[in-house]
Amino acid sequence: MKRQKRDPFQKAYVSGYKAGVTGRSRDDCPSQGIEMRESWMSGWREGREAQWSGMTGVSGLHVNPMATT
């Protein structure tokens, strides 16, 4: 069975979501490319919103961040 590679933009989004929900700064974005940074920042914003809604730490990581996009 062939493995399907994940979309790099989806991977950046999920990484940004995890960073946002754990309270990391948006300056921690590892990407310098415009499109990748945009995906990471979108995930980070969603993660911050989840954190502000009470989903802090591990409780926010169980949410599927790609279900909202």
Rank of each mutant, 00 (worst) to 15 (best):
M1P: 04
K2M: 05
R3D: 10
R3C: 05
Q4H: 12
Q4D: 09
Q4M: 10
K5T: 12
P8H: 11
P8T: 08
F9T: 02
Q10V: 07
Q10Y: 06
Q10F: 04
A12K: 04
A12V: 03
A12H: 10
A12D: 08
G16V: 03
Y17I: 00
Y17D: 00
Y17G: 01
K18A: 10
K18N: 09
A19M: 07
G20S: 00
V21S: 00
V21D: 00
T22F: 10
T22M: 14
T22L: 15
G23S: 04
R24I: 02
R24S: 10
R24C: 03
D27H: 08
D27A: 05
C29V: 01
C29A: 10
C29Y: 03
S31Q: 12
Q32G: 08
Q32Y: 12
Q32W: 11
Q32E: 14
Q32C: 12
G33L: 14
G33K: 06
G33S: 14
I34P: 05
R37Q: 05
R37L: 01
R37M: 07
E38H: 10
S39N: 03
W40P: 05
M41Q: 09
M41A: 02
G43Y: 05
G43D: 02
G43K: 00
G43F: 03
W44S: 14
R45P: 04
E46D: 04
R48Q: 12
R48G: 08
R48F: 06
E49V: 08
A50I: 04
A50D: 02
Q51C: 03
S53G: 11
G54K: 07
M55R: 09
M55E: 07
M55V: 04
M55S: 10
T56D: 12
T56S: 12
V58M: 09
V58D: 04
V58K: 04
S59G: 04
S59W: 14
G60S: 01
G60N: 01
G60M: 03
L61F: 11
L61W: 14
L61Q: 15
N64P: 01
P65M: 04
P65T: 02
P65Q: 01
A67M: 13
A67F: 15
T69G: 13
